[in-house]
């Protein structure tokens, strides 16, 4: 099994930005988005993050799986929240009175009574939620495709993480393809002993226990090799003093601009919410 990263240089505008600037921007925007429940503001953010997505020059083919995943989770959460549990984070706003459907069920045998009370407010809240989740998803979805894995260590070092921690990241990326190959080897070796991972037999417990012939050798082999890696690193003076990183990152004016833009969005969002904007909002036309 070749486990590899999705990164390839697309020469997009986004890749020309310093990765540190992009992490900072993404986090600032995440906090900004979470201040709003007003779909008008959220649509602005959706446009912004989709704009970033567009700048990354991603194709549908590449991101298809991720979007299906997002849609799946989002649908489950929104449907359950709207129809079944139906209270809502933002309390009062959800207690709408403009009922669309009302129905009372009695659950057989237990005799519990469950009320379905779909109101305009609740449905509109679902629309708001979808906008919000989509904005956040689009914001973070671009990262794996547009950041060079060899820069993660230097990036986080540059953002203030200690040497050892930053190097752990570098090392983790180094091990991924090796362990992917080891897993394939183990899978082949066990299949040669008649092991069939595809065969579904027994219950959940048996099925999980059946993973031991795969998980144990790969894990123990990795742990044993760790001893060698650690020795090799000690022998080359790892962790003795503050290290130099040859992957050099430098901020350019466009990076400051990018961070500044993110900061501006967050400040504006804070100010707006202090002024009382951004609360849950239902178009009055729907409440007629």
């Amino acid at each position: 099994m070749i486990v590899s990263f999705n990164y390839r240089n697309r020469h997009s505008l986004l890749e020309r930005l310093d990765p540190r600037a992009r992490w900072i921007f993404s986090l600032l925007v995440l906090f900004a988005i979470t201040m709003f429940w007003d779909v008008r503001f959220l649509l602005f953010f959706l446009a912004l993050t989709l704009g970033q997505y567009y700048l990354a020059r991603l194709t549908w083919r590449e991101t298809r799986r991720a979007w299906y995943f997002v849609f799946f989770i989002m649908t489950t959460m929104v449907v359950v929240n709207t129809i079944i549990t139906s209270s809502g984070t933002i309390g009062a706003a959800m207690k709408g009175t403009h009922t669309v459907i009302f129905h009372q069920f009695t659950i057989p045998i237990t005799g519990w009574i469950w009320e379905l009370n779909l109101t305009v407010e609740r449905l509109w809240f679902a629309v708001t939620q979808v906008t919000r989740i989509l904005s956040i998803s689009a914001l973070f979805l671009v990262i794996p495709f547009t950041m060079d894995p060899r820069q993660y260590g230097a990036t986080f070092r540059g953002m203030g993480l200690p040497d050892r921690l930053a190097y752990t990241l570098d090392l983790a990326f180094r091990f991924v393809p090796t362990l992917g190959r080891d897993f394939q080897l183990t899978l082949d070796a066990q299949r040669a002993r008649g092991y069939e991972v595809e065969k579904v037999e027994g219950g959940l417990f048996t099925q999980i226990r059946k993973m031991a012939p795969l998980v144990v050798p790969v894990t123990m082999n990795a742990i044993l090799s760790g001893e060698d890696y650690a020795n090799a690193m000690d022998l080359r003076c790892f962790g003795l003093r503050k290290r130099t990183w040859i992957e050099k990152l430098t901020y350019h004016w466009r990076d400051y601009l990018w961070i500044g833009f993110g900061a501006l969005l967050l400040i504006a969002s804070v100010v707006l919410s202090l002024l009382g904007y951004g609360e849950f909002w239902v178009p009055s036309i729907l409440l007629q």
């Binding site: 752990t168 990326f173 990795a222 962790g239």
Partner: peptide, 11 residues
């Protein structure tokens, strides 16, 4: 710890 954390994460 650095090595085992990295191996653990990759694994």
């Amino acid at each position: 710890e650095v090595v085992y954390a990295a191996i653990g994460a990759a694994l």
